[in-house]
Design a protein around this nucleic acid. Sequence first.
DNA 1: AAACGTAATTATGAATTCATAATTCAGTCA
DNA 2: TGACTGAATTATGAATTCATAATTACGTTT
Lengths: 226, 226
Amino acid sequence: MNQIESIKRPTLHEELVERLRNLVVEDALKPGEKVPEKELCESFGVSRTPLREALKVLASEGFIVLQANRGARVAEVTRAELDKTFPVIAALEQLAGELACQQATDADLKHIEARHAAMVAAYQKRDRKNYFQANQDIHLALIRAARNDVLEGHHRLLAGRVRRVRFMANLSDERWAQAIEEHEAMMKELRVRNGTVLGQIMRQHMMNKYAAHMRAMDANSEASES
Amino acid sequence: MNQIESIKRPTLHEELVERLRNLVVEDALKPGEKVPEKELCESFGVSRTPLREALKVLASEGFIVLQANRGARVAEVTRAELDKTFPVIAALEQLAGELACQQATDADLKHIEARHAAMVAAYQKRDRKNYFQANQDIHLALIRAARNDVLEGHHRLLAGRVRRVRFMANLSDERWAQAIEEHEAMMKELRVRNGTVLGQIMRQHMMNKYAAHMRAMDANSEASES
DNA sequence: AAACGTAATTATGAATTCATAATTCAGTCA
DNA sequence: TGACTGAATTATGAATTCATAATTACGTTT
């Protein structure tokens, strides 16, 4: 009998890790804010034990910070931390690009082509929402196509840490156009399965994205300081 | 008043994470083995609560595997997993090499030179123990010199996962000589702070190490099967 | 004797309880 | 009035307790 659909009743703490991480990534819990242990227990209808287990895991993933006897706070995403994180993400994306060219199935390529077309269409309509969605799909699909779950896991963690920043990224027209060009170049290399070059482009693409975010952040903080 | 030496009394579960991880990495707890919750509690003199919190963290780091209602087992390090892990480590080492050339202090360089000399000396005496130690020091120092704690953290996790394999690696004479050559090449680039090339060499060095391990493993399993 | 089913035991997940560190707040004194 | 002291309150870390799932042991049946 083949696994119909293995009945998975995840344990409470696993469920909680998922849901709490979403609260952080989705920005329902704001950076620096205290994680209200008691209220979360009540709203989830669980006792403190599994919730605290989940907090320990979230802390080891870097989403929250534990202070002994002083509870948990949502980790701040500082400029310094972004400076450390983006290069690592970029390096992983490079590897993903290389592996994807070796490992991707025809179905993978087809799917990525489709999402790429959708992304370009969204760009032409200046439809930010669908652009972001398609963009994210493409990056995820490329990671997946690399068929390396260790890579995928570490990438997901790091990407989660900076997701908030990506959300608020209101990209400039120039950067938007440049991003599209970079994606076109990526598709070109992916089609001929040139992993080395695709990897290089993906890495550079991520670093450009990073630089654009930093410029936007600096501009913002200057504006608010004036 | 400047922090004299902030009194850090780590919480029990933090302490436990450290010590349990060491048990796994140092191979005191063997892969596939059940993690004896009760006995560990007794030997550490703590209750189940902090120990189980620690287990959750170890699981999220991939060192152990939790099965609902069936306890924890030490994660197996399968061939498939090594195939996934080494390329990621290699990619991170490449980044480390690049950053180290930008960020390393003179003290860093001096320290690495010293450890390199010690490693070569150990090689000439065919002193495996000191060779391994110096080798590990060099890799760690290069990572540290990159001054990127996100990179360092992820590298440490991944390296921990495969440490066991590295231990049992009884490297061949040819591979040993080749490794020394690669290290010489690394030092050459580090001295002139050529990050791009150092990164490439470090990545390739790690992949060669991986290939050597795989050959050794295959040879071993063939031998035991015959 | 082997295989199945059932009861007893054990181990696990989660709730609760307990001890103590941190915080709040009231009262005192400068 | 404002800063400091110390009691009261709250929150946190850890131990204990409880309910239940999993495993083992045992007896029955073929």
